[in-house]
Design a binder for these strands. Structure first.
Length: 584
DNA sequence: CGGCAT
DNA sequence: CGTAT
DNA sequence: GCCG
């Protein structure tokens, strides 16, 4: 055994109290292996724009700047070089006035890294952060009239710093903290540099999605969509096992890296049996699947899909409504007695819905009851909740929530998980996992922050199935401290992203020792997560649930200190979140 | 034929 | 039964 | 609906 690790709880509770005034200057380092002697940038005054950088990137860049630059400025106007991961003018303008930016060198973080590696300042031209800015500078730069200079676009390798970096950084930006980077123990921060997935060690013929690389969009996406229609139909009809089979077949196809043109390719794939083989064959021949087309055009499927799109209506309720003869939203509203289009109570009201079974007096409601009130509300929310959330706005929601949380409890750490973390360009909701280095700060935080957001007009509805706090005396400590809240959120009008659209926001508060377990669990995808749990059980006799990872025979609990340690524990190759898209 | 995540 | 991944 |  290597070193015994200290208990996961940090003992530095005093240094925890550093304030956000330190944000720009604090950066005392995680230990750097061999610091090169002397400053690489002795004449450079730097300003770093934190936006779009994750905490580990921030601490890395601040460390480099502190060590190698003449000065790390608190204000952009004091600096001569601005480092930013932002690639678009409009976004940069939220942090730095355009007139100011025009007179500075605005470069990507890679410029700082490479210059330090180089031992001295490199030309800016391969690291121009913003295209508009480059054009402006080129136009205004007199020297550019004669010959290539630092202002001119490079013909050689400039792409490495723009397009490539841009996508990586935007995907890496899911983690943030309310503290100066240094106040947060390393075990709560994402690794820097980020881990790379070794695709050669993965196996698309594996029966477990957690051993396959599943990109967001695969070469057989059209086929996947057809099969997913059948899966949806099976689910809506209550044929859950059949639906599961289709989900697994889809999942296997998602990881197959070539376009399928012959059935021979399919023979190696798991979960493609008699029935689905026929469907795939049909698709190869004609580019579509008859059963999927039939389902798509069926009135029943359309109605069940529509009904299930309302939050709180699942397959069973949808079928019941269908059997009552209902077919449209208008008919649903009549049935649930929504006050037509004048539901001001819903638009302005602030509602808290408790999940508990209300002891209804079983009379006036008749028997149809069953969460009527919630469904009435959900009908009013449907239009908004059907609108997807762009990544930019997901990030803004994350910032807003963290800003509020910081006022309640300084030093929290969070990761935006769910589809956003898997790289989806748009999300249907936002999921955030939170923790705090001091485990004692977590209890009650979920409720408190939701209360605060609610008072600030940002949370309009709460489904509080919080705390599995049914204080089970057999399970002492931390288990029950995982709290979650499913809410309806709206950005404040002061936000530049404000569009008045209500959004689903899920908040998950985890004690620090369960943070990475929670992050893995909530990063999905669903099939990836199912198979991860299946793998844990089949190969290691372990149980992976919302409150942690335990060994089944002795109930020993595991506390992986990084996301990769979850994979290590299960003897799985690391798979980046963006390759866990095992669902359609 | 039982299992399919929790 | 519906929700979350 | 597929797998061991």
């Amino acid at each position: 055994m290597p070193f015994k690790r200290p208990a996961p709880l940090p003992s530095q509770s005093e240094s925890q109290s550093s304030s956000s005034a330190n944000l720009l200057s604090g950066s005392s380092k995680r230990p750097r292996l061999s610091p090169p002697p002397g400053k690489a940038l002795p004449n450079v005054k730097l300003f770093i724009v934190q936006a779009k950088l994750n905490t580990s990137a921030i601490s890395e860049l601040f460390g480099l700047a502190e060590q190698h630059a003449k000065r790390l400025c608190n204000k952009p106007e004091d600096a001569d070089v601005i480092v930013t991961a932002i690639g678009m003018r409009r976004r940069l303008e939220r942090h730095i006035p355009w007139e100011l930016a025009k007179h500075k060198a605005v470069v990507t973080p890679q410029w700082l890294r490479d210059s330090v590696k180089n031992g001295s300042s490199l030309p800016y031209d391969n690291y121009i952060a913003i295209q508009d800015l480059q054009d402006t500078i080129v136009q205004n730069c007199p020297e550019c009239n004669c010959k290539p200079c630092a202002c001119s676009p490079s013909s050689t390798s400039s792409y490495a710093s723009s397009s490539l970096r841009h996508s990586q950084e935007s995907l890496a930006s899911a983690t943030s903290a309310t503290s100066p980077p240094t106040a947060i123990p390393a075990y709560l921060l994402p690794p820097s540099p980020p881990l790379e997935t070794d695709i050669t060690k993965l196996d698309y013929t594996s029966r477990y999605a957690c051993q396959r690389a599943s990109p967001l969009v695969c070469p057989n996406q059209a086929l996947v969509h057809e099969l997913d229609i059948i899966r949806q139909s099976r689910a809506l009809e209550g044929e859950v096992r059949s639906a599961l089979s289709y989900a697994r077949a889809v999942s296997a196809l998602k990881a197959y890296p070539h376009k399928i043109t012959s059935m021979k390719q399919v023979e190696k794939l798991p979960y493609i049996g008699t029935k689905i083989t026929g469907l795939v064959e049909e698709f190869i021949d004609g580019g579509h699947i008859n059963e999927a087309e039939t389902i798509r055009s069926s009135v029943r499927f359309q109605a069940l899909s529509l009904f299930s799109s309302i939050y709180g209506i699942g397959p069973t309720t949808a079928q019941r409504l269908y059997d009552l003869g209902l077919r449209s939203l208008d008919e649903l509203e009549v049935y649930y007695g929504v006050d037509s289009k004048t539901q001001t109570s819903i638009d302005s009201g602030i509602v808290e819905v408790e999940k508990e079974s209300k002891r209804r007096h079983a009379k006036d409601e008749g028997d149809e009851g069953l969460g009527d009130t919630w469904i009435k509300i959900a009908l009013g929310l449907r239009e908004d909740l059907a609108i997807k959330i762009p990544r930019d706005e997901v990030e803004e929601m994350g910032r807003v929530v963290m800003r509020e949380l910081d006022q309640l409890e300084h030093g929290c750490v969070s990761t935006i998980v769910g589809g956003y973390r898997r790289g989806k360009p748009e999300s249907s909701d936002v999921d955030m996992v939170f923790t705090h280095p001091d485990a004692s700060k977590i209890k009650g935080l979920c409720k408190r922050v939701v209360q605060r957001l609610h008072e600030g007009g940002m949370v309009s509805h709460v489904m509080h199935l919080s705390g599995f706090h049914a204080h089970n005396p057999l399970r002492t400590t931390h288990w029950d401290s995982l709290e979650k809240s499913l809410t309806v959120f709206i950005l404040p009008p002061s936000s530049t992203f404000y569009r008045g659209t209500r959004r689903r926001l899920d908040l998950i508060f985890s004690p620090p020792e369960l943070y990475w377990t929670a992050v893995v669990g909530w990063s999905g995808s669903i099939m990836f997560q199912r198979d991860l749990r299946q793998w844990a059980k089949d190969k290691h006799g372990m149980k992976f649930d919302s409150s942690g990872i335990t060994r089944r025979y002795d109930s020993k609990v595991f506390f992986p200190k990084t996301e990769k340690e979850v994979f290590d524990l299960f003897e799985l190759e690391w798979i980046d979140p963006t390759l866990r898209n095992a669902d359609a």
